[in-house]
Nucleic acid binder design. Structure first.
Lengths: 238, 238
DNA sequence: AACCACCCACTTCCATACAAGTCAACACAA
DNA sequence: TTGTGTTGACTTGTATGGAAGTGGGTGGTT
C-alpha cells in the first residue's frame, strides 16, 4: 500500500516494531518526492528525528535498497536514487504483460457480480477524479488490485506492487496535470469489454491504458532531467 | 543469480561487507532445500558458525523475509518458510505473462544473430541435460535471461528473479526426475518459431513450456505435503 | 492425578560503542 | 599560485549488552 495519508505527521507506535514502520514512512516520502533524488539521508540524523537508534533506521534503509529507492555507498553515505528511466520502462512492460493476461482471464467467462462491483468502484473514481488526485491514486490502485483478485492471482498484484514504486514516483511528479478523468474512462471501457466478453478488445484496452505513462514520462524527464538516470539520450550515466 | 556452486564450502570475504554475503549463502541453502521448511534458524548460532556477530545475520534475515523465504516471529524465532503453493502458482502466472510478451516482441521481427546465439545455448543445454542437472538449471536461467535481454527488457528479468525463487524451490525438490531433455526440446521449438516469425505459435510454445511446473508441482506436494502451506486441498493452514 | 502459578532459558528487537573507510579543508612547501 | 600531504570530522559496517516478550518445565496445591 502507498500509505498516502498523514505521512508527514507520523508518530511511531511504540508497541509495534520500529523498523518496518520507518520503512513505510521513508518509502512514502521518497515516492511522493518529499525526499528528492540524490539527497542524502544520514542514519544518525533520521534516528534522532524519530527518536530511535541507528539500527532500525539502517534496517529500513536496507529494505529500501532492495526496492531500488535508496543507494548505500559504503563509508560514503546513503542517497535517494534517481528515477531509473529504463527501470520505469521495464516495470511498465512487466505490468502490461501481467495485467493483460488478467484481463484475458476475466473477459473469457461471464462474471456479473464482478462487473457490478467494478462499476461501483468506477463511480467512486469519477467523484475523486475531479477533486483530490491523491485519493484518486488510491482508488486506482484498488481497482487494479480488484482485477487481480477476481482472476485468482491476488499475490501477483503483491509482486507488481514492489515493481510499481518506480512508476509511482513519476506519477507523483506529474501530479497536478494528471489526466484522472481520462484514466477513469479507460477503466470504464475495460469493464465494458469484460462484460461483453470481448477478450481481444478488453486486453487491448488494458494494454493501451497502461501505456499512458509513456506519454507523461518524457515530459517529466524534460522538466526534471536531473532527477533521472539511464535516460534514453544519455546512455552513459556513471 | 542462483550461485549454485560451492555454497556449502563458503568462506566469507573479509574485505567485502558480510551481511550481503550471508544473504546469498542462506538464500541458496534454502532454495536448494539444504535448510528445510519449518526448521529454525537462530541468530547467535549462525553468527558463531560463520564467525561474525549477530547483526549482519539479522540483516540477512530481514532481506530474506522480503523474498518470502524466511519468517520472523518476534520473540519466538526465525523459521524457514514452507513453500507457499499459491505463491508458486502466482509466480508462475506472472512469469508466463511476461515471457509471452517477450516472445511476441522477438518473433515479430527478424533477428538472425539472436537465433544463432540461442542455438548455441541450446547445444550447450543438450550436453548438460543428460549429465549434470545442476548445470542445466544454470543454462536454463541463462537462456531465459538472453531472451529478455534481446527484447530490450533485461531489467524485467531481474524483477522476475526475485519472484522465481519460490518456483526454484520446487524445482530443486523434484531434481533428479527433472525432464531436462524435454525442456531443451521446448526451448528449441521456441527458437524455431521465433526464426519463422510465427508470433502466435511462438508465444503459445513459450506459454506451454512455462506450464511444465504445473505437472511436477502436485507430485512434489504429494510426496512432501509437510513442506507446503496454502495447498489447494487445505484452505485453512494456520 | 489434574491443574495452575511461577520461573528461567531462550528468542528477537533496540541501544550503544567501536572499527574502518572517505573526503574536504587546511597548512605548508615548491 | 599551484600542488601536495595530513589531519579530522564525517560516513557506514560490525560487535556487544540489555530490554521485553514467549514458552516450556517445575513444583506446589487442590
Amino acid at each position: 500500500m502507498l500509505e498516502l495519508i498523514d505521512i508527514d505527521a507520523w508518530k511511531l507506535d511504540q508497541q509495534k516494531a520500529v523498523s518496518p514502520q520507518l520503512r513505510v514512512v521513508l518509502r512514502s516520502r521518497i515516492i511522493r518526492n518529499n525526499l528528492k533524488p540524490m539527497s542524502r539521508l544520514s542514519e544518525p540524523e533520521l534516528a534522532k528525528e524519530y527518536g530511535v537508534s541507528r539500527q532500525p533506521v539502517r534496517e529500513a534503509f536496507i529494505t529500501l535498497v532492495d526496492e531500488g529507492l535508496l543507494e548505500i555507498r559504503p563509508q560514503r553515505g546513503t542517497f535517494v536514487k534517481k528515477i531509473d528511466y529504463e527501470a520505469v520502462l521495464n516495470a511498465r512492460f512487466v505490468r502490461e504483460a501481467v495485467e493483460a493476461d488478467i484481463i484475458r482471464q476475466l473477459a473469457s467467462r461471464p462474471n456479473a457480480e464482478l462487473v457490478a462491483n467494478l462499476r461501483q468502484e468506477i463511480a467512486d473514481q469519477y467523484k475523486a477524479a475531479s477533486g483530490s488526485p491523491l485519493q484518486f491514486i488510491e482508488l486506482d490502485e484498488r481497482f487494479h488490485r480488484s482485477l487481480a483478485q477476481a482472476a485468482g492471482v491476488a499475490r501477483a498484484w503483491d509482486y507488481l506492487e514492489a515493481i510499481k514504486s518506480q512508476m509511482d514516483r513519476v506519477r507523483f511528479m506529474t501530479f497536478e496535470e494528471f489526466p484522472s478523468i481520462t484514466l477513469v474512462k479507460q477503466h470504464e471501457q475495460v469493464v465494458d469489454l469484460i462484460e461483453q466478453q470481448d477478450v481481444k478488445a478488453a486486453e487491448e484496452a488494458m494494454r493501451s491504458h497502461l501505456r499512458e505513462i509513456l506519454k507523461s514520462l518524457p515530459k517529466v524527464h524534460e522538466i526534471y532531467p536531473e532527477y533521472f538516470e539511464n535516460s534514453p539520450g544519455s546512455p552513459r550515466d556513471t
